[in-house]
Amino acid sequence: MNNKNFIYNILIFVIYLLLQVMLFDNMVLFGSIFCFMYIGFILLLPLEFSAVILVVVGFFSGLAMDVFYNSLGVNAAATLFIAYLRPIWLSAITPRGGYEEVQIPGLKMLGFSWFITYALPLIFLHHISLFLIEAGDLINFWFILKKSIFSSMFTLLILVFGQYLFYNRKQY
């Protein structure tokens, strides 16, 4: 991971952050379906990132989001949880040809159905841990569960759209 790559990744993160804060924060369907597409940043980080770096990056990106949501530590906890799980999950669903020549585990490189298999569980785990930590209590558990299911579908939709829109010229 050289310096140019590093700055490039920071730029991408800033873009995700701005999009999330300016646009997707206010897109709450029916008052309870949220969209946390900033985790797309974690999900689409290059495969060469080591697991430890991934966890630390997850922590700091979640913390940056927390600052905007004024909920110090909640997003950080959820994001670093899926950053920890990402390498484990990736090795569990390795596609038939392995991950050679693939830099980013993205939709264009590895296929639509593979991407759904990869992203949906991680997104769901992120959302449910976020809502559970925020609630602090198991009282409204079914409501929280419903919220996380629908929100993760919404987030996945946004991420898929985003990938179709943007990742056509970049590295393969």
Binding site: V52, A76, A77
Partner: peptide
């Protein structure tokens, strides 16, 4: 090391949460 980092950072997160909310 990954798991240890994960646990340490999660503890830091909960410390932040308990401190601020």
């Amino acid at each position: 090391r990954t798991f240890v980092t994960f646990v340490l950072l999660e503890i830091a997160c909960f410390w932040l949460i308990l401190g601020s909310s």
